[in-house]
Simulated assay, not measured.
Amino acid sequence: MIQRVQTIFLFLITVAMGIALTNPLWEKAGATPAEMAHLTALQYTQQQLVSPQAGIPVPTSPATFGETVWYLALLIALVGLSSFYTIFQYKNRLTQTAMCAVNALMLTAIMGIILYRTLYVGKEFGNPADQGTFLPGFYAVIAALVFNALANRFIRRDEKLVRGSDRLR
């Protein structure tokens, strides 16, 4: 039945992935206050101030260097869509369990990509001792990991209950 508690957790995974897609994941300040590095689900950017002529005091203009991380957005969207699909597979709990396992793998890959981009690639920008600030999108991914584990637990509990009631017949 669709009114089960795992449905709520699967829906919350979908919401969390929507939040992760639309909000920034990480940011880090550079050596000067105007330098910033940002990571969103679609792009990693570094904004630095560049002076057109060195040594001459002129207003500096921002230069943005970006790199597309489309694979991160693709994984986040796949987790959201597969969680939404899993909600409607309530008649087949084994399929729901398998989909939760696939979601767990994809969420682990997402966390790995984010941590690689922030702790290794982002370390080169600005102060190497500063790790930057994790933003709401990152915490939404962590929440999705927790919701996925809870959904899987309740799906298994339902399966155990059904198998136990079949033995009594």
Rank of each mutant, 00 (worst) to 15 (best):
M1V: 15
I2C: 07
I2L: 15
I2S: 14
F11C: 10
F11Q: 14
L12F: 07
L12R: 07
L12H: 07
I13C: 03
T14I: 13
V15A: 07
V15N: 02
A16F: 03
M17Q: 02
M17H: 00
G18T: 03
I19R: 04
T22C: 14
N23M: 10
L25H: 00
L25R: 00
W26S: 02
W26H: 01
T32L: 00
A34N: 08
M36G: 04
H38S: 11
A41S: 04
Q43I: 12
Q43W: 11
Q47N: 11
Q48R: 13
Q48M: 14
V50K: 14
G55A: 06
I56A: 08
P57M: 08
P57W: 01
P59H: 15
T60A: 13
P62N: 04
A63L: 13
T64M: 07
F65D: 03
F65S: 11
G66T: 07
Y71N: 13
Y71A: 10
Y71S: 14
A73V: 01
L75I: 09
L78H: 05
G80Q: 04
L81C: 12
S82Q: 08
F84N: 07
I87D: 02
Q89C: 12
K91A: 14
N92H: 11
R93Y: 15
R93Q: 15
T95V: 14
T95L: 13
Q96K: 08
A98N: 13
M99C: 06
M99K: 02
T108D: 09
A109V: 04
A109S: 09
M111S: 07
I113P: 06
I113S: 12
L115I: 15
R117P: 11
L119W: 14
Y120S: 12
Y120P: 06
F125G: 00
F125I: 03
P128V: 00
T133C: 11
T133E: 07
T133W: 04
G137W: 01
F138G: 00
Y139G: 04
V141M: 04
I142E: 02
A144H: 01
L145F: 09
V146Y: 03
F147Y: 03
F147P: 00
N148Y: 03
N148A: 03
A149R: 05
R153Y: 09
F154K: 07
F154I: 05
R157I: 12
E159L: 12
K160L: 12
D166L: 14
R169H: 13
R169Y: 15
R169V: 15
